[in-house]
Simulated assay, not measured.
Amino acid sequence: MNLALWIATGLLALIALVGGISKSCVPKEKLAEHPAGSWVGDFNVKFLKSIGFLELLAAAGLILPAVLDIAPILVPITAICWVLLMLGAIIVHYRHGYTKPIVANIIYLTLALFIAWGRLGPMPFTG
């Protein structure tokens, strides 16, 4: 179970890292060129960069607290925050009629729920 939680956490952290880098570093116009990227037109650059920054924080928050053994409770808290972020992403993608990103968002949301459940329940870092 611990191994499964670490694999899920690493995968979700990688997804958050890639998303965060792309939203933080790629120009808005380039993001909009992506096949499912027209949603970026609804938001200003500062908002997109903020989402990217939150995703970068999520990548760090999923891994570093446990690895460094500094406030490992932040791992499931970060996972819960990721669930909220994915709910927002699902709403935005739904409004634009994108189904493939919604499927991915649901998978990411499920991974985050698994991490939160596992680290708050049967496999906490402390105890």
Rank of each mutant, 00 (worst) to 15 (best):
I7F: 14
E33Q: 14
F43T: 00
K30F: 09
T9P: 06
G37D: 08
L5T: 12
L111M: 12
I91H: 08
R119D: 01
T78C: 02
K23A: 04
C25E: 04
G41L: 10
C25A: 15
V18C: 02
F43D: 01
K28M: 09
S38D: 13
K100N: 12
G118F: 14
L11M: 14
G52Q: 04
S22K: 15
L57R: 05
M123D: 08
V67D: 04
V92H: 07
N105L: 07
L54H: 04
L48M: 10
T99D: 09
V92K: 10
I80F: 09
A8C: 06
K30L: 06
L57F: 14
V26Y: 11
L85M: 15
W39E: 06
V83A: 07
L11W: 13
C25M: 14
V67Y: 08
L120S: 09
A8E: 03
D42G: 11
G10I: 08
I90P: 01
H96A: 02
L11Q: 01
L113H: 11
G20P: 05
Y94D: 12
G41P: 02
P122K: 07
M1I: 09
L57V: 04
V75H: 02
V40Q: 08
R95K: 14
L62T: 07
L62W: 11
A59G: 09
L31Q: 10
V75G: 03
A59P: 07
V45N: 15
I102H: 08
V75F: 09
I73W: 09
K23M: 06
L5E: 05
F125L: 03
F114L: 13
I15P: 05
D69Q: 12
L12K: 00
I15C: 06
N44P: 06
I51S: 15
G88Y: 06
A60F: 11
V26K: 12
A66I: 01
L74C: 03
K49D: 00
A116V: 07
A116F: 10
L68R: 01
I63D: 01
L64Y: 01
I51C: 15
I80Q: 01
K100E: 05
C81N: 08
I51R: 14
I80W: 04
L5K: 06
H96M: 04
F53D: 03
L109Q: 03
L57S: 11
L57H: 04
G127R: 15
V45S: 14
S38I: 05
N44W: 05
S22M: 15
V67Q: 12
L11I: 14
A89P: 04
M86T: 00
G121Y: 03
A16F: 11
V26I: 14
I21W: 11
D69R: 06
L111E: 00
V103F: 13
L14V: 01
H96Y: 09
V92Q: 11
A8D: 01
V18P: 02
F125M: 10
S38G: 11
P76V: 02
Y108F: 14
P122Y: 10
F47R: 13
A79I: 08
L68I: 03
N105W: 04
I107A: 14
V103E: 10
G37S: 05
I70T: 11
L113Q: 13
H96I: 05
L64T: 00
T110Y: 02
